[in-house]
Design a protein around this nucleic acid. Structure first.
Length: 497
RNA sequence: GCUCCCAUCGUCUAACGGUUAGGACACCAGAUUUUCAUUCUGGCGACCGGGGUUCAACUCCCCGUGGGAGUACCA
């Protein structure tokens, strides 16, 4: 049997997500367990959302966790490039091959046409009918494309038949009828591939033997199997992991919870604990000698007993309380006081970080002893904002909560995280509400610092960093009574316009 | 709507036909600690429902129900 090769393939479209770490963790464990290789591939095929800044943060976050890869964009390897935006010609070549063999076709349909086809399909309880284009003359399609008219390349899905997927985590194979599937776009009009084309081509070219990914991909696996077949390749084995969930059991999202790896880093969690907790999310703890279970288990020990088939299939609610408990145990049990001090230095108690605080605090001090009380919030996991401090004179809690929500949205667009851009984002919400800036900043001071007074706001937000800032704003919104789902929806609409 | 996945305490899970259904987080009591935290002890608390199969079902099968995901020129 050939060497095990697995990968994690995140797309750099936002903050590094704990879900990515979770998937990476199981891939790495599988690779280590079988003496194989683990690769990192950047799936930056969405030109409108992918950012190099996000990729940099992602790599830094995964490195911090110690989820190291054997091949990747930053370390190279024999199967590069490992960034999909640098492999465009490869995808085009394979798309051409599928066009030539009649498995794909040029599509020129407008958005309006597609919408009407979909509506038609919906009404009949079937996927959108693409017959108009898919059965046309291939040469005509090619000629039309050559004129420079924008087009996409679509898969010609079989109208009948069933795809049987063997999933390593499940006893019974998964069967999905081809008839229920859309003619998937493979090549977009900007010349970039979609996920479906790129993932199959790359996994094959990079020698991936096992695709271990999130459960949200099950439904598109038949498309991938078809592609392997059409291209004349053997498909890798598949394993679809259960999803990480919000407390309300929906797919883990940043809407109300911290989902960025950087949040946990900045809030003071230890990588070993986060990793341990993530493993526990889908894998039973080791049995101890006395029958009790050993929940605390560093990654290297976990690898030694890892067996893909033992992964539990139900989605898991991410429980910060339990993470806190585990993190506390590592902090107390595994670190000498010296090591604890070092961990603190690596985190925030270092000259580099403190030096940035000095200019903010110096004008506000009479004795050296005034420093810490006035800037504890930089070193705290969270602060407790009091309701009365969050309310500017004459404002209702409900309105202030809504206002803070728009600040959260406004701040989301700030990349990279810099002072002036933050100020612009905050002022923009001021204009939106047509409130004096004071009524915006007072709640902000309180949310960020726990009290309505403190060092300069924008500079402080920069140092607090994006994830901690976001969570403090969300916490303040809760103190104010929250923003109802219905209201948030309307607000989001108004805000977007 | 259609397709697929999943289903044990509030949460994470053990059990792989025969157990008083075990452990962990959280919570509640008590002990230790000058305080707090830690630590220790105890408590609360679950097999989604209905049919089968079997001497015996949490466990196997079927049907419901519930939850989730997918259904994009996003991944």
């Amino acid at each position: 049997m050939s060497t095990v090769r697995v990968r994690v393939a995140p797309s750099p479209t936002g903050a590094p997500h704990v879900g990515t770490a979770y998937i990476a963790l199981f891939n790495l464990a599988f690779a280590r367990r079988h003496g194989g290789q683990f690769l990192l591939r950047i799936e930056d095929t969405d030109q409108t959302r992918s950012l190099k800044a996000h990729e940099d943060r992602l790599i830094s976050a995964l490195r911090w966790l110690g989820l190291d890869w054997d091949e990747g964009p930053d370390v190279g390897g024999d199967c590069g490039p490992y960034r999909q935006s640098e492999r465009l010609d490869i995808y085009r070549r394979h798309a051409d091959q599928l066009l030539a063999t009649g498995h794909a076709y040029h599509s020129f349909a407008t958005a309006a046409e597609l919408a009407s086809w979909r509506a038609e399909g919906q009404a009949a309880g079937v996927p959108a009918p693409f017959a108009v284009e898919r059965d046309g003359d291939p040469a005509a399609g090619r000629a039309r494309a050559a004129t420079g008219e924008p087009y996409v390349v679509r898969m010609k899905m079989p109208l009948e038949g069933t795809c049987v997927i063997e999933d390593m985590l499940r006893d019974a194979p998964i069967s999905i009828d081809y008839a229920g599937l859309d003619d998937q776009v493979l090549l977009k009009s900007d010349g970039f591939p979609t996920y479906h084309l790129a993932v199959v081509v790359d996994d094959h070219l990079m020698g991936i033997t096992h695709v271990i990914r999130g459960e949200e991909w099950i439904n598109s696996t038949p498309k991938h199997m078809l592609l392997y077949d059409w291209l004349g390749w053997d498909a890798p084995k598949h394993a679809h992991l259960p999803l990480l969930l919000n407390p309300d059991r929906s797919k883990l999202s940043k809407r109300r919870n911290p989902t960025s790896i950087d949040y946990y880093r900045r809030a003071g969690y230890l990588p070993v604990a986060l990793l341990n907790y993530l493993a526990l999310m889908a894998y039973p703890p080791a049995a101890g000698a006395d029958g009790a279970e050993q929940e605390k288990e560093p990654f290297d020990d976990f690898v030694g007993r890892f067996d893909l088939a033992r992964i539990s299939l139900g989605g898991s609610v991410f429980d910060v309380e339990k993470l806190n408990w585990l993190n506390g145990r590592y902090l107390r049990e595994d670190l000498t006081p010296q090591q604890l001090l070092q961990a603190l230095r690596d985190w925030a108690l270092n000259d580099d970080f403190l030096a940035q605080i000095m200019p903010l605090m110096q004008p506000r001090m009479e004795t050296l002893g005034d420093l810490m009380p006035k800037c504890v919030f930089f070193f705290s996991r969270n602060v407790e904002a009091k309701l009365e401090d969050l309310l500017p004179k004459g404002r209702q809690a409900e309105d202030v909560a809504a206002m803070l929500q728009t600040v959260v949205w406004s701040l989301e667009t700030v990349v990279p995280w810099q002072r002036d851009a933050i100020e612009v984002a905050v002022k923009r919400t001021g204009e939106f509400w047509d409130w004096p800036i004071r009524d915006i900043t007072r709640p902000l001071y309180t949310a960020i610092m726990g009290q309505p007074v403190g060092p300069p706001l924008y500079e402080s937000i920069v140092l607090l960093d994006v994830d901690l800032t976001r969570m403090r704003l969300l916490a303040a919104i809760e103190v104010l009574g929250g923003v109802s789902k219905k209201k948030a929806k309307k607000l989001e609409k108004d805000w977007a316009s």
